[in-house]
Design a protein around this nucleic acid. Structure first.
Lengths: 348, 348
DNA sequence: ATTCTAGATGCATTCGAATTCATATAGCAA
DNA sequence: TTGCTATATGAATTCGAATGCATCTAGAAT
């Protein structure tokens, strides 16, 4: 770089600073004495640029602190490299871990996550509009949507993957843990432990995950000719786990020796209620099982018997499926299902 | 709407469908027989548009499924309405709740969150580049940055707020829980409970939060002429809470009657180790305190004595400060500090 | 020396909405 | 009817990078 060139670069830099402006590809071009297209190409791997040019431009870009404007790029390439992740704002301690996993996997592919958390069911429509406006390349749905809402995405050809949910009526890609199978397994284990009086604490009534899990458990119980099962509705929270067990015994007057909870967190509440409120020995007097493999479930105070969702695999699968469909939108929907992993614990 | 107009709209719709294209403001303009500027104005509240025009355009927009392209809008307005949220991928169960809070507060203001999770310290530089490229309006930093990295944001005039951290050398806005004060309080409570032999389980050595908390505790202990304090380094995880207590007693041969943990999750591990490994009565034989107010800390099995961070307030403050600085970048940095709330629990 | 080719470069256009400025229209007063 | 205003509308430009196309250059082949 000659001295006069150097000066020119600094002059441009000064000018930008004065006007408090970001460097654009034009600025770099001007400062380096080349065309804007050249600058653009220098930032595109595999483009036809000479070594000399690339070096020169990179030098100037560094001095000016230039980085391509992703927004402008998105506009012309019609690719935002952003995906939306929509999660229910459950009391579900499980999602956070999911977010971290997804974030890792997406970042590896240079994709960024726009996060949407749902407060109320009614926010969905609003959020779908936002998703659409922001031109995201795809969507991960870890929230409950109506078929109408799903079809919104379908009609607009936004690739999406349902996480731990599916729709029977609308074709869609999904990644799931086999809730049904997992619950069957748990029931079998409870039976093997000679449990006789079963009860179930479900999740909120609009949760399809809870519904599937409970169907799995019930089906197996019926197969085994156990039909006298008490069912009570929880809301996935620790507190509702406690309360449900208490009202089950105190109000419904049903004394179970096996409690099947729709998720781990409720199971933990249930354990505490059993131990503290009723002074039961767990699992001697009462068995309690959950579902998820939430982190606190394995803590010594609990050591919950549960089925663990293979979170990493599931997140990766979701990202895989989504990215494939972004690359080639003509791909048909794909569903992947993973078996949960039995975690023996100490409450059975 | 006359029939011929109607037909024209449907024709445009058909055309878009054929080419598999999204409707743009031009399409709407064409279909409605007005100018593009008119369409644009119809979507801007308070713009000068006649009622008739607004109605007509809205009708057509609905039929064509038109929503303004946020990317294109960002380009021209120089406002992306996106903020970056950078969090450490700690074992810290506390962040998830923060995310939900932030998401709620930002969404209320029509701002969207681009989520970045840090695996390694070394990712920071990379992530800052991304943040810059995506033209975010501001950044929430819930991760540790070096002063050099901080100054990157400063130099580029990106408004940002440090969450639960500050820099002494670089002026910056921040929201904090008063860790120092909180720890003093806990120490005083431990003293009031007649505790004599103290030990501390810190967080990872590069965590400034942990450093501040431990300084607060130590300072108070020294003021009270207690200088014989055993310190051991943990990593914020449940497991490290367990291990630290065990190695403290078994290896360092130091038998404490008070354990100060840098966060709640370690304290929970510590409680379990005390109860199960050592058969201690908590708090009879040993007091254990944490910091954060993590959800599981209040579960019956633990009922940890701790100081709870006012999460909602802090998140709101962070959003407030950030948005103010986005509206008016000339505002000087502002630091807000909140006192933690003592949660008595049952382990002291 | 001449022709051909591959690679390098620049020009001009494009993506989609916002906005400035100029113009047109309706409404009202004189 | 004329003139004036206030409001509505459209034309043209802008944001910043990517890219198809045309042009140019250097080196190889003849």
């Amino acid at each position: 770089m000659t001295k006069s060139q150097d000066k020119h670069v600094l002059y441009v830099k000064e000018e930008l600073a004065q006007n408090n402006q970001r460097a654009t590809s034009y600025d770099v071009a001007r400062a380096a004495g080349v065309s804007q297209s050249a600058v653009s190409r220098c930032f595109k791997p595999g483009a036809s640029v000479s070594e000399k040019m690339r070096k020169r431009v990179q030098e100037v870009a560094t001095v000016l602190g230039y980085q391509p404007n992703a927004i402008a790029r998105s506009l012309i390439t019609r690719r935002s490299n952003m995906v939306a992740v929509v999660i229910n704002n459950d009391t579900n301690l499980y999602y956070p871990e999911l977010l971290v996993e997804l974030s890792r996997d997406f970042n590896e592919r240079g994709v960024h996550m726009l996060l949407f958390t749902l407060e109320h069911e009614s926010d969905v429509a609003n959020i779908l509009d936002q998703v659409w406006q922001y031109q995201v390349d795809g969507v991960i749905l870890a929230a409950q949507l109506s078929d109408t809402q799903l079809s919104f995405l379908g009609q607009r050809d936004i690739p999406f993957v349902y996480y731990n949910r599916t729709s029977d009526s609308i074709p869609c890609s999904s990644v799931q843990c086999d809730h049904f199978e997992g619950e069957r397994l748990l029931v079998d284990k409870l039976i093997a432990a000679k449990r006789k009086r079963f009860c179930i604490i479900t999740g909120p009534s609009d949760s399809s995950v809870s519904a599937t899990r409970m169907q799995g458990a019930l089906k197996r119980l019926h197969e085994l000719d156990i039909s006298d099962v008490q069912i009570i509705e929880g809301d996935y929270s620790y507190h509702s786990g406690q309360e449900s067990l208490i009202s089950m015994i105190d109000e419904l007057d049903w004394q179970p020796d096996a409690v099947i909870c729709a998720n781990d967190i409720m199971a933990l509440g249930c354990i505490d209620a059993a131990r503290n409120h009723f002074k039961f020995k767990v699992p001697k007097q009462i068995s309690i099982v959950g579902f998820d493999g939430a982190v606190p479930a394995s803590w010594q105070a609990y050591q919950l018997t549960t089925v663990t969702q293979p979170l990493e695999l599931m997140a990766q699968a979701a990202v895989d499926i989504l990215m494939q469909r972004i690359e080639d939108p003509s791909l048909p929907p794909e569903k992947r299902s993973f078996s949960g992993v039995f975690s023996p614990g100490n409450t059975l």
